[in-house]
């Protein structure tokens, strides 16, 4: 690991100025991913600006049913929050299905959004990787890619986004709150926060240098909506998703889908919002056949590779089961 400076930020402006004005400076929050990447040599910051003392650590429930989650709220506390469990269970489920107990106590909401892919080549500095070192090539296409993405990928990168939390946030229409370097506030919809890899896979989000995530806002869920997070993985606990589905479903009295939102994990270059499937299902009866057709249509643009093509069939099954169970639960 390269030597680095360390500063504790006492206020947001000082933190932003330090990061914007110093070469190789990055924010440090929980560090569960950043410290590991530094150990691996994947990331070599010259200065860590510790932001854990900044005042972004509360969960504020609003009268309208929305909530503002501070960027520094750790996953354990967010998943334990009674209001989140009661009204945004898909988010609590997603958090509790990710990482381990002692990672969730530290990993923050803002940091979770910015965690990097677990593609083995990204994490191995001896191998070519366009995301880690632009224009060196992608080792995964011809190598190990079973765990990687099929949606939104390019010839340059097939890495998947590893977050469970962000998949739930995608389905919940979350809004990321940012603080620009000069102090102005900016909001970005989560579904516009991540960039697709294209030919610049090293650029992952719309963040500008010095931008600081201050929180994540959840609008009130649709009236009468049921929601869930369903995750399929190689082992029952403490594993990344092969496929996951965050589903938010509201039905009319006759069972028609008034609103449906689907976030997909394990399959996308970013936390994937399944707009095509939603379009095909909105206003329709969620029959098994229609659910399967809509789920499959979402993958019409997929770029499966030999080891991860199975994810398409798996995702169709998981999407179908997730929505079927939610609709069934609502009817009870």
């Amino acid at each position: 690991m390269k030597p680095f400076g360390y500063e504790r930020a006492t206020d947001p402006q000082a933190a932003a100025t330090l990061v914007a004005d110093s070469t190789g400076a990055v924010y440090l929050a929980g560090g569960t991913n950043l410290v590991d990447l530094m150990k691996l040599g994947v990331t070599e910051p010259a200065l860590l600006v510790d932001i854990t003392g900044l005042p972004y650590d509360s969960v504020e429930h609003r009268p309208d049913g929305g909530v503002l989650i501070g960027a520094l709220v750790p996953g354990s506390r967010l998943a334990g929050d009674p209001g989140i469990r009661e009204r945004f269970p898909a988010l609590a489920e997603a958090l509790l299905s990710g990482a381990s107990g002692q990672l969730r106590t530290v990993a923050t909401t803002g940091g979770n959004l910015l965690q990097r892919t677990r593609c083995v080549y990204f994490q191995d500095v001896t191998k070519p990787c366009n995301k880690r070192r632009p224009e060196t090539g992608c080792s995964a296409v011809q190598g190990l890619h079973r765990d990687l993405a099929v949606l939104g990928t390019s010839d340059f990168c097939v890495a998947g986004h590893p977050s469970d939390m962000a998949v739930a946030l995608a389905a919940l229409d979350a809004v990321v709150h940012l603080r620009r370097v000069k102090g102005s506030a900016r909001t970005v919809p989560l579904n516009g926060f991540y960039l697709l890899p294209g030919d610049t896979p090293h650029r992952e989000t719309v963040l500008q240098p010095g931008d600081l995530i201050t929180g994540v806002e959840l609008p009130p869920p649709p009236e009468g909506a049921a929601m869930s997070y369903r995750k399929v993985r190689d082992r029952w606990s403490y594993a990344f998703a092969l496929v996951s589905v965050a589903a938010v479903v509201a039905t009319e009295a006759d069972g028609t889908l008034r609103e449906i939102r689907l976030g997909l994990g394990g399959v996308g270059a970013r936390p994937w919002r399944a707009r095509e499937a939603e379009r095909l299902l909105t206003g329709r009866q969620p029959t098994e056949e229609r659910l399967r057709e809509a789920a499959r249509a979402e993958f019409a643009s997929a770029r499966p590779l030999p080891q991860n093509a199975f994810k398409i069939d798996l995702a169709v099954d998981v999407i179908t089961a997730a929505v079927r169970d939610l609709v069934g639960g609502q009817r009870r």
Partner: peptide
């Protein structure tokens, strides 16, 4: 490497001592 920090369980290998 799990220890307790302010009563919460934490992997001490992923925390810089200075932090």
């Amino acid at each position: 490497c799990t220890v307790l920090i302010d009563g919460e369980r934490v992997n001490s290998c992923l925390v810089f001592a200075v932090a």
